[in-house]
Nucleic acid binder design. Structure first.
Length: 785
DNA sequence: CATGGTGGGGCT
DNA sequence: AGCCCCAC
C-alpha cells in the first residue's frame, strides 16, 4: 500500500559455497578456503572465498594457483563435476534449506539467487509493535547490528526512544519500524544459524535497493539498518556504481554523460533533465533512487521461474562436429530431466516451454554470435532427457546450419564451432495433477503384452517398498489409492485383495521370491531395503518418523507457521525417498524438533520475557560437530546416520545403475536409428529437412563406431514396452528399467497436497519502477558497435 | 580461451 | 520470439 514505508530486508549468506563446504567438512572451519570450479586451467576458477582466506588477500577472479601463491595453506574444495560440467546441486539444496527457514517469518519472500532473499516484513513489524514496548528494545538484543549514520547502535536506539525530539529531520515512525524490523531480523538470522548452521548478513531499509546496498556494508554475520535520514550521509561518498542496476554499462553511461561518480551528485539533476538525457523511465528511476526511493515490490516467489543448465565451450573445447554436439545436448538434457523430476515432485508443476541457446564462434576479434530458439511442448511430449536433447538438436541444426554440405562421410563437421550451449525450461504449468492422472493411466495400460499378474506383483512389491519407508498406514493407503486411480478395475480388484489380506504376513516371502527370480536393478534395490528391514535399528527410525507425521499435522494448524506441513506432505516426502535422498526423513525429523524449540523461543519473546529476549542467540553455543553416530557420504558429502548408511550407499548405487541403463537405452536407440536410416541411404538426392540430415549423419560409419561395443552376434529381442531391440541377456535389466520409469512417474505424479506457491500473495506488477528501470534503446545503440 | 553456471528481466 | 543486460 504505502510503498515508501515498507520494511524490506535483504538476507545474504556469507561466502555461501564456502560455508556449505565447511559444514560438510568441519575440519575446514577456521582455515582459509576457497571453492573452485573444476577447470584444469591454473587450478580452477575461484567462485567463493571464506573470510580467513580473504584476510590473506585471496579474492574471486583469481585462479586456484594464484590463491596458493598468496596463501600456501589454503584449501580448495571443488564444485563436483557431473557430465563434464559443474554441478551445484548441493549448494542449491542448502540455499533452499535456508529459504525455508526464512519463509516461516513472512510469506512475502523473494528468492533473488541461490543465497539471497528479499523479505518484506512490514506486516510482522506492525504486529510486533502492537505487542511490545519499543522502549524495551536495547542494543543487547541486537548483537552485530549497525545503524548507518550512527557511531553506535545505542545512539540510534536512543534517537528512537527520544521520539526523535533531538532532531528535526528525524522521522520517528520510520525509525521505530526499522528498529523493530532489526529485532525481527536478528531473530531470523538466529533461526537460520540454529537450524542450518549458516551465517548470513542482512540489510534493513525501506526498499530493495537500499536493503541490498547496506547489507554489504557490514559483513560477515552482521546486519545493518539504514534510517531514512542517513541516506544522504551514505550517498555523499557512495559510488554510483555500487547501486544495483548501475554496476554495468548503464551505470558507466550515466556517470560519463553526467560527469559524476557518486550518488549524491546525482541529486543535482531534475527529473526532466534525467529523462531528457536517458529516457523517460530511466530518468524517473534515477531521480527517485537518488533520493532513496525505490518502489519495486518484494514479490512472493520461492521457486525459480526457469530451470536451466549451460556450458561454455571456449577455445579448444568448442564443439566441432555433430557427435560432440549431440553428446553435450544429451548431458544437458539429462541434467534438465533430473532437476525437473525433483521440481515436479516438490512443486507440482511442469514446464510448457524449453529454450536452447548456443553461440557460434565468430572470426577472431569479433564477438561470438549467440542465438536461442524455443520450443513449446505439446501435451504428448514426454518430459524426458531424450526430448530435451533431441528437440534442442533440431533447433540448433535448424538455425545454425550445423552440417556442411555433404561430402561423403565427413559431413559431420559443423560449419562454425559452438562455443556455448544451454537448455532451459520454463513457463511452468501449475497444479498439473488432473492432466497427469491421465498420463499415469497410459503408462500402466501400455504394457499390454506382458504377463499381467507378474506386472502387478512387481508393481505391488515396489509400492510396498515405498510404504515400507513411510511406516504409516496412512502412507500406504495413500500410495495405493494413487495407484488405483490409474488402474483399471480388474487390476484394482487383483491388487486390493492381495494387499489387504496378505501384506503383513507375506511381505518377506514376496521379496524373497522376487529376488530369487532375478538379480537386477530393482532386485538389488529391494534387497538393500530388505536387509534394512531385518536391521533392528531401522524400525526405531520409522517409529520416530510416524510420530513426527502426527506432530507436524498438529503444527499445520498453527497459522503463524507458514512452513507448516500437512501430514500428506510429510508422507509425500517419505514416498519421495524412493527416488530422492533416503536421509531426508531423518533430516525432517531433526528439522521439526529444531522448529519446535525455536518456536518456543519465539513465543518466549512474544510473551514478554524480555530479559530472555536480550540473550537471543545470534551465535548459539550449539555444538555443531557431527553426530558420532553419523558419517559423511563420500558421494554427496551429506551426513548420514550410521544405521542408514547402507541404504544411502545403495541409493547412490541405484542412481548410477539407472544412469547406466539410460545410456544403454540411448545406445540402442541410436543404433536402431542408424539401421533404419540405412534404408534411406540409397534413395535419390532430394531436399531434406535438417532433422533428416541429422539422422542420416548418424549413419556415417565413424559415428556408429562412436557408440561402441555393439556386438551384432548377440541375439536381440524387441522390447514390448518400447519396441527397441535389446540384447537378450540384457532384457531383464531393460524391463526393470521400464518398471523403474513407471514407478518413478507414478511417484512424481502424485499430488502434492500443500502448494506453497499458491499460498503466497500474488501481486500485480504495478511497480512504476519496473517501467523505469532498464536501459532504453538509445543506450543499447550507444553501446552496440 | 580464461569466473562459469545460473537466474531475472526488459526491449524490440 | 529472440536478443541483450545485470548480478551473484
Amino acid at each position: 500500500m504505502d510503498q515508501e514505508n515498507r520494511i524490506v530486508v535483504l538476507i545474504d549468506m556469507d561466502c555461501f559455497y564456502c560455508q556449505v563446504e565447511e559444514k560438510l567438512n568441519p575440519q575446514l572451519k577456521g582455515k582459509p578456503i576457497a571453492v573452485v570450479q573444476y577447470n584444469p586451467w591454473r587450478g580452477g576458477g575461484i567462485i567463493a572465498v571464506n573470510y580467513v582466506a580473504r584476510a590473506m588477500g585471496v579474492t574471486r577472479h583469481m585462479r586456484g594457483n594464484e590463491a596458493k601463491q598468496k596463501c600456501p595453506e589454503i584449501q580448495l574444495p571443488s564444485v563436483p563435476c557431473f557430465r563434464g560440467k559443474a554441478d551445484i546441486t548441493k549448494y542449491r539444496e542448502a540455499g533452499k534449506d535456508v529459504a525455508k527457514v526464512l519463509q516461516r517469518f513472512t510469506p512475502l519472500l523473494e528468492r533473488a539467487s541461490i543465497d539471497e532473499a528479499y523479505l518484506d516484513i512490514t506486516d510482522p513489524v506492525r504486529k510486533r509493535i502492537l505487542n511490545i514496548d519499543v522502549r524495551d528494545i536495547n542494543s543487547n538484543m541486537l548483537p552485530n547490528n549497525f545503524a548507518l549514520g550512527y557511531d553506535t547502535l545505542d545512539s540510534f536506539i536512543s534517537d528512537v526512544h527520544s521520539c526523535g525530539l533531538s532532531s528535526m529531520e528525524f522521522d520517528y515512525e520510520h525509525s521505530k519500524h526499522l528498529l523493530v524490523g532489526a529485532l525481527i531480523v536478528s531473530e531470523i538470522r538466529a533461526a537460520v544459524y540454529a537450524e542450518t548452521g549458516y551465517q548470513c548478513s542482512a540489510g534493513i531499509a525501506h526498499n530493495k535497493i537500499l536493503a541490498k546496498l547496506v547489507c554489504g556494508m557490514n559483513k560477515p554475520n552482521k546486519q545493518t539498518v539504514l534510517p531514512k535520514h542517513s541516506v544522504n550521509i551514505l550517498y555523499k561518498t557512495l559510488s554510483l556504481k555500487k547501486v544495483k542496476h548501475l554496476g554495468g554499462k548503464f551505470g558507466d553511461h550515466v556517470a560519463e554523460t553526467l560527469n559524476i561518480s557518486t550518488m549524491g551528485q546525482l541529486q543535482r539533476f531534475t527529473e526532466k533533465d534525467l529523462q531528457a538525457r536517458f529516457d523517460e523511465k530511466n530518468g524517473s528511476w534515477l531521480y527517485n533512487i537518488a533520493r532513496g526511493v525505490d518502489l519495486e515490490p518484494v514479490q512472493a516467489r520461492f521457486n525459480p521461474k526457469s530451470i536451466g543448465c549451460c556450458k561454455q565451450l571456449r577455445g579448444k573445447a568448442a564443439l566441432q562436429d555433430l557427435v560432440s554436439l549431440r553428446k553435450w545436448l544429451r548431458d544437458l538434457g539429462d541434467e534438465i530431466e533430473n532437476r525437473l523430476e525433483q521440481d515436479s515432485l516438490e512443486n507440482n508443476r511442469i514446464p510448457k516451454q524449453m529454450v536452447v541457446s548456443f553461440s557460434l564462434q565468430a572470426s577472431k576479434g569479433k564477438r561470438d554470435i549467440s542465438s536461442s530458439r524455443s520450443y513449446n511442448f505439446s501435451p504428448e511430449d514426454e518430459l524426458c532427457g531424450e526430448i530435451f536433447s533431441s528437440k534442442a538438436l533440431e533447433l540448433v541444426m535448424d538455425s545454425a546450419e550445423g552440417c556442411k554440405p555433404t561430402d561423403g562421410e565427413l559431413n559431420r563437421m559443423l560449419k562454425s564451432p559452438i562455443t556455448f550451449l544451454g537448455i532451459s525450461v520454463g513457463k511452468f504449468d501449475d497444479n498439473i495433477d488432473a492432466k497427469k492422472t491421465k498420463k499415469i493411466k497410459d503408462y500402466f495400460s501400455a504394457g499390454s503384452s506382458k504377463d499381467v499378474s507378474q506386472t502387478d506383483e512387481s508393481v505391488r512389491i515396489k509400492l510396498e517398498r515405498c510404504v515400507e519407508k513411510d511406516g504409516t498406514n496412512a502412507g500406504k493407503e495413500y500410495v495405493l489409492e494413487k495407484y488405483f486411480e490409474s488402474s483399471d478395475d480388474v487390476r484394482k480388484e487383483n491388487i486390493t485383495s492381495k494387499i489387504s489380506t496378505e501384506t503383513e504376513q507375506r511381505k518377506e516371502t514376496v521379496y524373497q521370491s522376487s529376488l530369487d527370480r532375478q538379480e537386477s536393478f530393482f532386485a538389488k534395490y529391494l534387497n538393500s531395503g530388505r536387509s534394512n528391514v531385518a536391521n533392528d535399528r531401522t524400525p526405531c527410525t520409522r517409529a520416530a518418523c510416524g510420530q513426527t507425521l502426527h506432530l507436524s499435522n498438529a503444527e499445520a494448524s498453527n497459522d503463524t507457521d507458514y512452513s507448516g506441513s500437512t501430514i500428506n506432505e510429510e508422507i509425500n516426502r517419505s514416498i519421495a525417498l524412493f527416488e530422492d535422498d533416503p536421509d531426508d526423513v531423518t533430516r525432517v525429523v531433526n528439522m521439526r524438533q529444531l522448529l519446535k524449540t525455536s518456536e518456543a523461543k519465539l513465543e518466549d519473546v512474544e510473551d514478554g520475557d524480555r530479559a530472555q529476549t536480550g540473550t537471543a542467540p545470534i551465535e548459539p553455543e550449539r555444538n555443531k560437530s557431527p553426530d558420532i553416530n553419523s558419517v559423511e557420504c563420500s558421494e554427496c558429502g551429506k551426513t548420514v546416520s550410521l544405521d542408514k548408511f547402507d541404504e544411502h550407499s545403495d541409493y547412490h548405487l541405484a542412481l548410477k545403475l539407472r544412469e547406466e541403463m539410460r545410456q544403454e537405452v540411448r545406445r540402442e536407440q541410436n543404433r536402431t536409428k542408424s539401421v533404419l536410416s540405412e534404408t534411406n541411404k540409397n534413395s535419390p538426392n532430394k531436399k531434406e529437412t535438417p532433422e533428416k540430415q541429422c539422422n542420416r549423419s548418424d549413419n556415417v560409419p565413424s559415428i556408429v563406431n562412436f557408440f561402441t561395443k555393439f556386438d551384432r552376434s548377440i541375439e536381440t529381442k524387441l522390447c514390448a514396452e518400447c519396441g527397441k531391440k535389446v540384447p537378450i541377456n540384457k532384457l531383464p535389466e531393460h524391463l526393470d528399467f521400464h518398471e523403474a520409469q513407471k514407478l518413478s512417474r507414478e511417484i512424481n505424479n502424485r499430488s502434492s497436497v500443500v502448494n506453497v506457491t499458491s499460498a503466497k500473495r500474488k501481486r500485480k506488477s504495478s511497480s512504476p519502477v519496473k517501467k523505469n528501470k532498464v536501459p532504453c534503446k538509445s543506450i543499447d545503440l550507444f553501446f552496440r558497435q
